[in-house]
Design a binder for these strands. Structure first.
Lengths: 366, 366
DNA sequence: GTCTGTGCTGGTAGCGCTGTCAACGTTCCT
DNA sequence: AGGAACGTTGACAGCGCTACCAGCACAGAC
């Protein structure tokens, strides 16, 4: 018995097999495909493993089987709370599987992404989750050649590498603008930061909606490459206001910016929504509790991460999903900051948590 | 040449060695300890590896060397933005090392932590980062027995397992209350959510400061086990106000709660700081840009993660730090929400980014 | 000239597990 | 009854790398 023990004192599969009275390979099978064993041996191996406190050596398994049980995840930012929700979904889904998550941060650089992709692929991951649909041609070639399932998350578009889950940022922005139109707003500004591909598509959606209505003007758009923040929202709004004092609404590319605009309005004593309406994007938790409560476009971030990881794991295990491209849609959550103008300029006292009118839309593909 | 190629088409060390005209073991040494090679062989192996695009097989290395290049990280939450800053620091520090991060979420459960710890330790990590100092005795025993460097982060306390980096939440809370006392406040409420050990210590600091001043009353404290949120801040503050309408300040266990209190005050038309002062904790970005700007206790979260990972990697590589326990301290950032009462009840128009008065304190050890 | 020490290099023997294939016993069909 | 088909089991041979130890050449000490 002792002779089967590792030098390091760890219990090996051989020892479990010996105690169970089976060959090592049978014990090995127990951990990979228990159904293949007879019930008698299965229970024998199981109890032997438990008795000895056996923990498989993943390195040996990876070496022998020529594959790992690692899911690589490439996201552009760890700071942005949008990704923390997605990540939580991914980790939750991976928790009860035998796969572990290997996370890397591309810092919004597709070159960095390419480099990380090369690194990941060299270790033969079981699967890969990548953000967005804008990869370098080199990255794209690597992804196409990869022999593991891949999920692209955050948005949907044509030509998926493999699986895809997200929504149309373009349509979501158009829906936000349509909502503002419906409330009677016309001079609608756009405030955006970071300007990654998804924010860019929101801008595109805004531009097209405004053009469709014959209301687009370049000076209504203020953007910057700087990372987003609440403070930045106030600063960009200040710029916008200087360019176009007659503006009656602002569409913010994310909720942090929207909060910054809210505070800046308060600082300038601009009434919301009477003088200026605000719409954010993502529907972070605080939007429902701000004063006034802030309208936003709800995106299903946790669900996105969770479903992506679940789909990926299923695909790794050979259960490919029926629909490899999944549109999670979005909802425009209408709140006080964009409600129709009223005579009473004060927000309701019990504003937080008040029933939110919702407009749900699946985003159009392509 | 071809015969050294893996079935999978990957280049092995043996092939690099052959091209370089050295033995495999010499090539192996090149990657682990280049200084041990003569300059001639070093350059030969280097160029051979580059020419072939060699990428080491980590599983084989781990199996043969009986150790991994994985740093395990155990944090209680992925949602809390406090941890996203810490994580960013950790990932940044690991990026240019050969170690990779394996992250797991304990969900604020020390039992879950114990389970994960067992899992991690079984894979022989190169190092471990764990959150806080409140482990189960079983966990503590495992950590003590672990044969890898360990860093405890987020707080400091007696009996470090190995290394430790953080600050005293107790002292930080006392400093916040001292600041409020200095501004003339007396009836100071406490609002806390989640009540993990660190929040509990902030509460302890609050209680002791209030007792020292002979001002403590149990009904000034409102806490809940519910996870924190902005909305919850408003709700808890509402409770507090119902219990003690005469309150003149609130110390919030974190900034989300503080923002919720701010909005609730606005909803109730309570003037800040004239009627009630607010102090938060962590100094998230939005605190400087709220209206009025919100006082908070700044904690060095990114630096904490970054330094923890750097210390850990150094220790793994045999360079143990001079001081295994590092107190990163904190700063009370005084802003409008706790400024002395003024006749003018309106906040300054250019409030955001206005010079912040700071009170820096190292937290006392133990 | 012999001995010891140092710097570099290579051979051997696994690390712990799994893929492949063959073999076994049993059942079911013709 | 004979044979095919199936389910179950085990032997063998590595997966790609590194720990360990031995060996070599050379330098310096006696």
């Amino acid at each position: 018995m002792g002779r089967n023990r590792t030098k390091s004192g760890k219990i090996r599969l051989a020892e479990v097999a010996e105690l169970a009275g089976v060959s090592p390979i049978t014990a090995s099978r127990f951990f990979r495909n228990p159904e293949a064993l007879s019930v008698a041996k299965r229970t024998r191996v199981e109890s032997a493993a438990r008795e000895l406190g056996y923990v498989p050596n993943l390195a040996a398994r990876a070496l022998a089987s020529q594959r790992t049980e690692v899911i690589g995840v490439l996201i552009p930012s760890l700071t942005n709370n949008v990704f923390s929700d997605v990540l939580r979904g991914i980790y939750d889904a991976s928790e009860n599987s035998r796969y572990s998550i290997q996370l890397s941060n591309t810092r919004y650089s597709i070159l960095q992404e390419e480099k990380l992709l090369r690194l990941f692929l060299a270790q033969k991951p079981a699967g890969l989750i990548v953000t967005g649909i804008d990869q370098t041609t080199e990255s794209r070639a690597m992804l196409d050649a990869a022999d593991c399932p891949i999920v692209q998350i955050m948005e949907i578009g044509p030509n998926p590498v493999d699986m895809m889950i997200g929504f149309s940022h373009y349509d979501a922005a158009r829906a936000a603008i349509a909502h503002l139109f419906a409330q009677g707003h016309r001079k609608i500004g756009f405030v955006g930061a970071r300007m990654d591909p998804r924010v860019q598509r929101r801008l595109d959606g805004y531009v097209s909606a405004m053009k469709d209505a014959g209301l687009f003007e370049q000076r209504l758009v203020v953007t910057t490459a700087t990372p987003t923040s609440v403070t930045l929202g106030g600063a960009l709004f200040t710029d916008l206001l200087a360019r176009e004092p007659g503006m009656d609404a602002v569409f913010c590319a994310n909720d942090d910016l929207a909060l910054g605009v809210l505070f800046e309005c308060r600082r300038r004593e601009i009434a919301i929504p009477e003088q200026i309406a605000i719409v954010g994007f993502n529907d972070l938790e605080f939007m429902a509790s701000a004063v006034p409560t802030l309208t936003s476009v709800r995106t299903n971030r946790y669900e996105m991460g969770n479903t992506a990881a679940t789909m990926l794991i299923d695909a790794i295990d050979g259960r490919r999903p029926e629909h490899p491209v999944l549109d999670l849609g979005f909802k425009v959550i209408e709140r006080q900051s964009s409600s129709p103008r009223r005579a009473d300029n004060r927000p309701a006292v019990s504003g937080a948590g008040a029933a939110n009118k919702m407009v749900a839309l699946p985003s159009g593909h392509d």
